[in-house]
């Protein structure tokens, strides 16, 4: 889109956006010779930024697309038995279920994109990632925490997917409307409780 990228990158509609190939030489001239900012290569790992950006955008829009298709499919009040167009179709059921995970993956790839794309900087122009590493936390400790969090989130992912499948298969419960419910007629004993 003309002008928009210029504005996003530079804050000026006419600003020039520099390609990644051109920056190496200029950055070496600007930042080499300073302990906080000197690295050999100022370019991020291009395949990671390239693909993670496309996965972020692709999955995000795919999720929105499926979501809208499902909404369209759900229009109307259903047939004489109250059956909607979703019921009886496995494919549509699975499509609706996958939408749940699309924003999660789009978000994750978005994080990978920004964090990998800004390398080697932790603060652009001021401090590189390698100089930002805390001297009192060794590589082993960092690796340990990575393993712990990855394992923990792995287990949580399995639990979450398992629960989603259970609830998906069980289907929605029809909740009868309680005609006798009267919020003003509450007694002291009808506590407002949130049961676990």
């Amino acid at each position: 889109m003309p002008k928009l990228l210029s504005y996003l990158s530079t804050g000026d509609l006419e600003g020039a956006v520099e390609g990644v190939n051109g920056i190496q030489e200029r950055y070496v001239q600007t930042y080499a010779g300073n302990d906080l900012t000197e690295v050999e290569d100022y370019r991020p790992l291009m395949p990671v930024t390239y693909w993670s950006f496309r996965l972020m955008m692709g999955l995000g829009f795919l999720g929105m697309g499926i979501g809208m298709a499902v909404l369209w499919r759900l229009r109307g009040k259903g047939d004489a038995d109250g059956e909607t167009r979703m019921e009886g179709s496995r494919w549509w059921g699975w499509a609706a279920a996958t939408v749940l995970f699309m924003p999660l993956f789009a978000n994750s790839f978005g994080w990978i994109f920004t964090e990998m794309g800004r390398q080697p900087w932790v603060v652009m122009g001021l401090m590189t990632t390698q100089t930002a590493v805390s001297p009192s936390v060794g590589a082993g400790t960092v690796a340990l925490s990575m393993v712990v969090y990855t394992a923990l989130y792995g287990v949580l992912a399995v639990l979450m997917v398992g629960l989603s499948l259970r609830y998906g298969r069980a289907g929605a419960e029809v909740v009868p409307e309680d005609a006798s419910y009267d919020p003003k007629g509450r007694t002291d004993d009808d506590a407002f409780v949130f049961t676990y």
Partner: peptide, 28 residues
């Protein structure tokens, strides 16, 4: 303030969410 009341034994419903979510699927 909203949840200021005591939680009593009879407030606890016998089934929390929905009873359909049991058994077969995950063997838990």
């Amino acid at each position: 303030w909203a949840f200021r009341r005591r939680v009593k034994g009879h407030h606890i419903p016998t089934s929390v969410h929905h009873a359909a979510v049991t058994g077969e699927t995950t063997g838990l």
